[in-house]
Amino acid sequence: MKNIVSIKHLTRVFDVSKPWLNRVIERLPKRMLTAVSDVSFDIPERTTYALVGESGSGKSTIGKMVVGLLRPSEGHVEIDGVDLVTEKDPAVIDRIRTDIQMIFQDPFASLNPRWRVRDIITEPVAARGGNTDGLAERLLEQVGLAAEDASKYPHQFSGGQRQRLCVARALASEPKLIVCDEPTSALDVSVQAQVLNLMSDLKDEHGLTYLFISHDLTVVRHMADTIGVLYLGRLVEEAAPDDLYTHPGHPYTAMLIDAAPRLDAFGREVEPPEGEIPDPTDPPSGCAFHPRCPLASDICKSERPQLKSFGAGRVACHHAGQIELKSVA
C-alpha cells in the first residue's frame, strides 16, 4: 500500500529563552525546548494513524509540521513523495497543499465569526478560482446539516454543529489527507460519537487519510488503523489498536490504558497516572519515562531506548512487554 505521509527523524526545537537584555542582566543561558525529537512513521493512504499522549507530548506540533504551519528543525515530512520545505516547484507545492486540510480543536476559534457559513466553506476553493456554485449547500447536507444553513453565521450553531462546519470546509478542496487535532475534545460524549461516526463514514466515502491527534485512547481505539504513543516528544510505541490494548509493550502505554474510562467497569477504582511529564527544557537522562516507570532499572537511567520490533509493531523500552495491565483487557 502506498504511503501518503512519510515522516523521517522529525525534530522541532523552540527557543523559550527570556529576551536578550534580561539574559544579559540576569546572566542566564538560552533555554531550548525540544517539543518533538527524532520521530519517524508512515501513513498508508486511506488509513487512519492516531497520535496519543498527555498534554505537552508533541502531538499538535507534529500535526502542524505535517500541514506546513511549522518548519521542522531537523528531519523531513513528505506528502505524496514531496517535501514542502525543500520543494522548489510552485506548481507541485500548490498541488500538494490542495491535498492537505486540517480540523482544529476549537471549532469556534477556527471559524471566522464575521463570515457566513457559505463563505467559510467555499474559501479554499474560491482562493484557487474554482467553481463554488452550490458547493456549500452540498457539503452541508453531506455532514448532516441543512442547505439553508449556508446563510447563517457560526454563532448560530452548537459546538457539535460547528465542528461539522469545520469538516465540511475541510472537504471542500477534495483533499487526500486531513489532520485532525483533537477534533472532539471540546464536545460532550454524545456529540463526540456523532462527529466521529461522520468522519468515519466520510473516510470510506471519499477515500480519505487521517492523522488523528488525541489524548483519549478510548476515542482512537475505534477510529485508528495504527496508534502511535508519544511521550515527551518521542514515539515510544506503535501498534494496531487491538494489539496495543491487549498487549502494550511500553509501561507508559499500559498506564494510559489503565487510566482510561471503561463502560464495562462501573465503580472500579482507578489509580491516576503517577507523576507528571518532566520539564521538556531539562529532560531526564536515558529513557525520559524512567522517573515514573515501575520497571525502571539502571540501564533506563543511562541509555535512551531505540524503537525496535515488538510483535507486529514497534516499542522503545528496555523492558518491552514485561508490564501487565491492571484492568481487564
Rank of each mutant, 00 (worst) to 15 (best):
H250Y: 04
M223L: 07
A240E: 15
S214M: 04
C287F: 02
V219D: 05
K2W: 02
S185L: 03
G275L: 03
L139W: 12
G233F: 00
D149F: 14
F157G: 13
R12H: 15
Q101V: 11
D38W: 01
T209V: 04
K152S: 04
D225L: 08
S327Y: 05
G249L: 06
V219Q: 06
L69K: 06
R304T: 14
Q192P: 03
V13L: 06
H76F: 01
G267C: 05
R234T: 13
D264G: 04
Q101M: 11
T34Q: 13
P273H: 07
Y252R: 09
L202F: 07
A50C: 11
A288L: 03
S190G: 09
G63L: 07
N197T: 01
V52M: 10
I96A: 09
D225S: 14
K301T: 12
E137S: 14
A172P: 02
R292P: 09
M255E: 14
V179C: 10
S327F: 07
T47Q: 15
T86Y: 02
R118H: 13
D279F: 00
E74R: 14
Y153R: 14
D94M: 10
R314K: 15
A136N: 04
G75A: 06
A288Y: 15
T281I: 03
R162Y: 12
R114L: 04
L256Y: 00
Y231K: 08
L230N: 07
L187W: 07
L84N: 08
S302M: 03
R138F: 08
G130E: 06
T47N: 11
L165N: 06
L51M: 12
N112W: 02
L187P: 02
A170E: 02
G311W: 06
D216C: 10
P183I: 02
K30F: 05
C293W: 06
K59F: 06
I100Y: 11
M223C: 09
A35E: 05
M102S: 10
L70V: 01
L187Q: 05
D149W: 07
D225C: 11
A240M: 11
F289K: 07
L69Y: 05
V229P: 08
D282A: 14
S60I: 08
D149T: 04
R138L: 10
Q142R: 15
P261G: 03
M255K: 10
G249K: 01
F41K: 08
C166A: 15
L139C: 11
N112Q: 07
S60N: 03
G249S: 04
Q322V: 00
H247Y: 05
E78F: 01
S57V: 04
A288P: 00
T209R: 12
A260R: 09
K18S: 12
M65N: 11
D99P: 00
N131I: 02
I25F: 14
P154Y: 03
V270W: 01
V236C: 06
Y231C: 09
L263C: 03
A296N: 04
L244T: 09
Q105L: 08
I4R: 10
E237P: 08
S302G: 00
L140C: 12
H247K: 13
L140T: 10
L232Y: 05
T98F: 02
A265H: 12
R221G: 06
A320F: 05
C300I: 05
H206N: 11
I79T: 10
L51Y: 00
H250R: 10
L235M: 14
L307Q: 03
D282G: 00
V167L: 09
L21G: 01
A265W: 01
H319F: 15
V270R: 12
P291R: 08
R221H: 13
